[in-house]
Amino acid sequence: MKKFRVVHYINQFYAGIGGEEFADHKPEIREGFVGPGMALTGAFGDKAEIISTIVCGDSYFNENLEEAKKTILDMVRSVNPDIFIAGPAFNAGRYGVACGTICETVQKELNIPVITGMFEENPGAEMYKDKMLIVATRDSAAGMRAAVPTMAALALKLLNKEPIGASIEEGYLPNGTRVNFFDKERGSRRAVDMLLNKMAGKPFTTEYPMPDFDRVEPSPAVKDIKAITVALVTSGGIVPKGNPDRIESSSASKFGEYDITGVNDLTADTYETAHGGYDPVYANADADRVLPVDVMRDFEHEGIIGKLYNKLYTTVGNGTSTKNSKAFAADFAQRLKNDNVQAVILTST
């Protein structure tokens, strides 16, 4: 029997090239499997094989979107696969966005099935879950062992044009398409079980999650920027040299509040980044590149803004859960409000 031909897309990290300092790596194509492709190959058995692996740096992909898409598409086309698989990206934001974007392009241009995998909070999941099958994974590579067989099984179903069951059965992220199936228990039984669990304070899972439209109305524009206090906030991890509060380089559990009274410029001797999700060389040399205290101070002196608020709020937006980020910002937003700050510039890497 003929083996299906698979092309696998991974980033520079999973290809063993390196971490953030190599995130600018340009797309390349290699023969056979690389990194996590080995486990996928094992899961495919004799039914499919990875004929080529495409490797691309996460920053390169996101910063050179059109060029990256075109180059990678040409690479995929050149080996004529039956299916395209990307990732899994777990909770790596840029990797997830890259996986979703390139899968969408390949699906549309080459008309072959695609599949990827990521954690539900990955921004790539929100962007692409209704456009392709995205296998639900854990938030870190520790979830590789669970993700691989699910991805391989779904890939084979797509290749054999078998019907795809409901997300809860197949392990992909709900994509808004309803699939009927017969449960083992009847509805009344499940409802009573759920109610009993709820009353006992035990965990239970709803069968009909409400859509999450978490949108906030834009605040009215600032009337006179010359008359107000503006604050700087960042998810780019800029902290005083030495990271006094030990904000974690990923999955941050806290934010920092730092007084910048009298600080006109962030220098290599005074500030650095705690962020572990991008190459820190440039921010460590001059943190104004991420958190622009120097120019904001000039604006203040020149009367372009009323005042620069005397405190910075900073955390590391790298695999940090939505729940934590929300709690941090709810906390410091109240402090900003109490101090009559009337506008915020928030920078992200």
Partner: peptide, 28 residues
């Protein structure tokens, strides 16, 4: 974080490189 700041009524601008992520998150 942008949404929580906006929620207390302070206008906020998100300066970021990957704007599709900012759009998905809900910055205005």
């Amino acid at each position: 974080m942008v949404k929580e700041i906006e929620r207390v009524g302070i206008p906020v601008v998100h300066v970021c490189t990957v704007t599709p992520i900012s759009m998905t998150v809900g910055a205005n």
